[in-house]
Design a protein around this nucleic acid. Structure first.
Length: 574
RNA sequence: GGGCGAGUGGCCUAGACUGGAUAUGGCAGCAGCCUCCUAAGCUGCAGGUCCGGGGUUCGAAUCCCCGCUCGCCCGCCA
């Protein structure tokens, strides 16, 4: 368990304030807020007490201020505008924060190791084409959340449920088998398997609509598949596997590697989906209509046209959500906490799934993180209609742009080194730009924003890190100094205050699943570092040098940690 | 028609769950800063009916109600 430098201060305020309140006859949990740092470090609003004590908030604040003397940890306690304000002892904060970071290094901010096994399902895009930037929001949210949870001490397994069942993948497989390559235009001229195969899928879709013979063949194949024909199932799986290879390659390029892949067809082949059907049929909520079975979920808060959840077709075959239930029952055995990262279109399906799991008397339930779709300025993306920006193209563009920037300023580096840095920057810019926005906000993809390398962006943070490395590289060996008297500049104090907030930020991102706060925080650290850098010399600063080098090293560890939570590389030069 | 989510300067965005002091940053714009640790940077200026209207409250971007706009869903698809 790492140190949270702010915790002793919070504890102190809770103690002395609680005591002061009790002496005034108020028994309550002490809740204080964190105001603008220019005002105070911590603040207690006295307004809610006005009614209880029948006094003006100002008077209450004055009275509290009179009761509380400054302490070793709190250098100033004062009343202002109906608040009781606290200023922490800055010297104490400097020593504690720098001391904690330098001794804990990459573990600073990490949570205590936990035994709760987390199974985080993300990505799970249909393998009918290359992953596009709309769907890329899923792996980026999922991977970032996984990293934040791991930082908090959770053992996390990430998993992709591969949809190798159903009309889409059957159609893809039919297309690969029957469409002549002369009729196919691939997604791009690259040799990547998913870019090659998607053309067959798109052409097959066209043929399906225009040619009744094709419709017949596909229906036939689908029927064989639904009846469990192992040959057909195997063929479809083989095609999706090829497509998935391409998708995996794209994911790897943006730094997303999943731990496990589970194939949906497995739950048909091993009979577990069938078992779900049989169990559901026994429930009092189950009804049958022309051979098709459904659950009436009106007592589960689902009403109207949505209340009937069909779990079999009239021919007895299973439906997607039924197989998803089998998958979840399987996950229950392997984990203590399940998190699913899903597109907002999945909400109803998940509501059905949650209700159905309750009907089966299952106590566990997955927790879901939903995200809104990314659209293009001209509208929604669609692989089928070829209205898309593929992730591969975005990555290429980002790396090219980054390469231009690196070449402009670093004539000294080898071509290979410049390429490596460009990859780290390009990939980072994409990840940062998508993760910085709250998942539930709709996002319109714009090239100029996705390729932003300034201000609130990954390169801004990476650059701050590289600056730290550069100074430390030039400094060579030095002796750490945590002497607050040597770190008195306002920009030094501000930077230290920000560094002290890292453990709390990590907790928020992981425990509250609010990963978009990490880019906000990382930008804040980088910004504080850049201001410090601009105004305070480090090298050749005489008696201050060791203390400032210590601060630079501390900033480097925190920047590195933040970048790591975000899945961004921390280049030492750029 | 019903359900869910979002609406914050020209554009993007934090804050909302847990109401509290002058609403956070960035992009674009304007004006400055490289004899000094990488200017992907720093400083300053300008820019706001927090979608609209009611309500609750000492106090509302935040909570409640009504409406508007946008997205998603309402298949024996996945």
């Amino acid at each position: 368990m790492s140190t949270d430098p702010y915790e002793p201060f919070r504890q102190e305020v809770r103690n002395i304030l609680g005591e002061a309140l009790r002496s005034m006859g108020v028994e309550q949990k002490v809740e204080f807020e964190t105001p603008d740092p220019n005002i105070a470090d911590m603040a207690f609003p006295c307004f809610p007490l006005a009614k209880v004590l029948r006094k003006a908030p100002k008077a209450i604040a004055d009275e509290l201020a009179a009761k509380i003397a400054p302490s070793a940890l709190l250098e100033r306690v004062w009343a202002e505008n109906g608040y009781l304000n606290f200023k922490v002892n800055g010297d104490h904060l400097v020593k504690d924060t720098l001391g904690a970071i330098i001794s804990e290094k990459r573990d600073y901010g990490a949570g205590e190791p936990k035994s709760c096994r987390v199974l985080l399902e993300h990505t799970s895009v249909n393998p009918t084409g290359p992953i596009h930037v709309g769907r890329a929001r899923n792996p980026l949210i999922g991977d970032t959340l996984a990293r934040c949870l791991r930082k908090n001490g959770y053992p996390v397994t990430t998993e992709y449920l591969v949809n190798d069942v159903g009309k889409q993948v059957v159609l893809l497989t039919w297309g690969v088998e029957h469409v002549p390559s002369s009729e196919v235009k691939p997604a791009s001229d690259r040799q990547k398997v998913d870019h090659q195969l998607v053309g067959y899928y798109q052409r097959a879709n066209e043929l399906l609509e225009s040619d009744p013979e094709v419709e017949k063949q596909v229906a036939e194949m689908l029927r064989a598949f639904e009846n469990g024909d192992p040959l057909v199932i195997e063929k479809v799986r083989a095609t999706t596997e090829r497509m998935l290879d391409g998708i995996k390659e794209s994911l790897t390029r943006i730094g997303v590697v999943l731990d496990q892949y589970t194939w949906e067809s497995q739950f048909i082949l091993n009979g577990e989906a069938r078992q779900v059907v049989e169990r559901l049929k026994l429930s009092p909520y189950a009804h049958e209509e022309e051979g098709a079975w459904y659950l009436d979920l009106s007592t589960f808060g689902i009403h109207g046209r949505e209340q009937n959840f069909f779990f079999t077709r009239s021919d007895g075959t299973t439906l997607y959500t039924t197989r998803d239930m089998a998958y979840h029952l399987d996950k229950f055995k392997r984990s203590d906490l399940m998190i699913n990262v899903l597109g907002e279109d999945q909400k109803l399906g998940q509501a059905h799934l949650l209700a159905a799991l309750k009907i089966l008397c299952e106590e566990k339930a997955p927790e879901c993180v939903y995200y809104s779709f990314v659209s293009l300025p001209e509208g929604r993306m669609s692989t089928r209609k070829n209205v898309v920006v593929y992730l591969d193209d975005l990555i290429d563009e980002a790396e090219d742009r980054a390469f231009e920037e690196v070449r402009k300023r670093r004539v000294d580096l080898s071509e290979e080194k410049m390429r490596q840095i460009s990859r780290e920057i390009g990939r980072g810019a994409i990840r940062f730009n998508i993760v910085r926005v709250q998942a539930e906000k709709q996002l319109t993809f714009r090239w100029e924003e996705a390729l932003n390398f300034e201000g609130n962006s990954a390169p801004f943070v990476q650059y701050a890190h590289a600056r730290c490395c550069s100074i430390l590289r030039k400094a060579g060996e030095f002796t750490h100094s945590f002497d607050p008297r040597l770190l008195n500049e306002p920009y030094e104090r501000r930077l230290i205050r920000v560094l002290a907030q890292y453990p709390a930020t990590v907790r928020d991102c992981g425990e509250r699943r609010r990963i978009h706060l990490m880019p906000v925080y990382a930008h804040e650290v980088a910004s504080a570092l850049n201001q410090f850098y601009a105004y305070v010399p480090v090298l050749r600063s005489g008696e201050h040098q060791n203390a400032r080098l210590t601060l630079v090293e501390a900033a480097m560890w925190v920047l590195r940690g933040s970048l790591d939570c975000l899945g961004l590389a921390a280049p030492e030069e750029m």
